[in-house]
Amino acid sequence: MNEINIDSGQAATTYQNAGRIFKTFFEEIGNVIVGQNRVIEQIVIAILCEGHALVESNPGLGKTLMISTVSKAMNLKFSRIQCTPDLMPSDITGTNVIEEKDNRKEFRFAPGPIFANVVLSDEINRASPKTQSAMLEAMQEQQVTVGNDTFLLDRPFFVLATQNPIEMEGTYPLPEAQLDRFLLKILVDYPSYEEEMEIINRYTKSEVPKISRGLDKDTLLDLQKLTRLVPISEELKQRALSIVSMTRKDKEHIEYGASPRASIGLILAAKARALIEGRNFVSKEDIDYMAYPVLRHRLILTFEAERKGMTPDQAVEDIIKKVK
């Protein structure tokens, strides 16, 4: 049974070289970004799964640098949207502008920053709900509707939205239904002492590190298709499903659990991780590892759990331990 119709010759070449491709890719990223290997890996996983990621970190941890470096390494068009409370939907999607041509005035669509392959939506929780919806609609449908015209977004299309965990006053936190649209929620930690020393050494020189080599778009599209072909055993599918369904059953700590979208996301993310690691099968470790970024933004803890200082990651950890 052929699952996806792809050009077998090209895909075979890409598959055979996948290990080398990813190794080179991460090395190139490492020339610019110090540490944060886990974050970079999860961003790449989200791209391979044709999903989107929400990054939560304190200011100054290199979120913009990370995603712009990834897009450069993948030879993809990059755009950045700085969300503010006065940002309008048309500022994101684009708008029709009047253009005079040959003494004739006509409307011309001026595409917004959303028309890129990699979009960084910085501090998405500062934008108004209306503007957030415009962004999220583009993420979900991979198209933009302006007036009566619909414009398809170029593939691959990846949105990295960021949130600042501090200074939440005056912001519009994303509701649960919209958070669910993000495949992963990635937490960025402060670098270690040694890593920060390396950052200082690299970025206080006259020369700023640059990426020299990249991954072309066609190869990335092939890798996205190959991700879905990675086989997974029935036992692990059941494990993934058990983990997600237990989030709905653990009423002691979790008020609202994850939806079936999380089950799909978890398996896809595990497949992507297996491909990055150079394996042709999904392992139990992939499922357990990806459960945290897939589930942490989809759980609403009970008041009592929050009062005790429980985090969603701890709730996920408890569930993973219970599931055999």
């Binding site: 049974m1 052929n2 996806i4 190959l226 072909l229 086989p231 997974i232 055993s233 042709n280």
Partner: peptide, 11 residues
């Protein structure tokens, strides 16, 4: 074994 009836390059 679980994917024996699936035919793709990775399987």
């Amino acid at each position: 074994y679980d994917n024996r009836n699936t035919d793709n390059i990775i399987v």
